[in-house]
Amino acid sequence: MPRPPLRPWLFFALLLLLLLAFALSLTLGSVEIPLEQVAHILLGGEPDKASWADILFKFRLPKAITAVLVGAALSTAGLQMQTLFRNPLADPFILGVSSGASLGVALVILGIGAGGALTFIAGLGVFGDFTLAIAASLGAGMVLGAVLLLSRRVQNTLTLLVVGLMFGYLASAVVTLLIYFSQPERVLVFSLWTAGSFGGVTWSQMRVFAPAALLGLLLGFVMMKPLNALLLGDDYARSLGLNVRRARFWIIVSASLLAGVSTAFCGPIWFIGVAVPHVARSLLNSADHRALLPASMLMGAAFALIADVIAQSPGSQHTLPLNVVMSLFGVPIILWVILRQKQLRQSFAS
């Protein structure tokens, strides 16, 4: 029987890459902690330098876990949106989730009445470090709610796409307006948020972030089979017995949950969601989501970890904005992978 080759070695290689990247992100940074010390500390041993344990547990470990989750989340959401909309340019934010989150955050950072940035930042402490995450979640949730309501009623998937884009423009317009009337200090705070970072998630935030991201990923696995049915378009999917509206609803819930929590805790991270699914398709030479989805998760997680290691510019005190690193280093790599494949066009139905 001519089954398509499954290439288990590829998954093994990806898993290895992920473990390697995870180890790297724990070792490298402004201070280098030797790998055997990392293992020693994680196993509960006493470090050579007392500060290492702190660095590891307070900063690097939550950051690495965040990177893994966000990388997997955005790759999954990107893959889902690309298949749902049959569009290679679709990304996790295409339905306006990140615009909604930006709006929420902008309202908090820029919109809170008079008073200097200092009192604002002091105010953050009162709210706890959840303020931005809550604001972003509310913004993302509002847009998501509107889109989901529509998805129940709209027959044509493409209509949803346009509606999502319009919501995005609307949110961006309000954000721009807020920036226009704000003090420069606050604009700076806001622009730092838009640069994206895995470093802001504390352990207490992790208790919300990780379960939400895992739930989204789990839902992604459940929606793998419907995604395959949707490969030939809505009509064929319906004729295969799929309830297209319901499948679309849950796919959007999963993708938006993933994109929403990522944005809420790490800011908008643009690159992974578009690029990683293409690389997965290219490497696996397949359109089967049962292979593409896990491969995208592994790849996205590894890519996020590596991008973060580079952003920390090991050995120096500087940190680069995450989105900048992803684009500067990611674009050439991904262009190379994709241009090797002749038939990007054919990867999608027109």
Binding site: P2, R3, P4, F221, V222, M224, K225, N228, A229, L231, L232, G233, Y236, L240, G241, L242, R281, L284, N285, S286, A287, D288, R290, Q343, Q346, S347, F348, A349, S350
Partner: peptide, 25 residues
Amino acid sequence: RVDAGNLSAWALVSLGRHPYTDWLG
């Protein structure tokens, strides 16, 4: 025309089994 990208002919035919397979396909 149907354009479903990287699907092999076999994989495309296998989509027809959607009503019979388990939740993982």
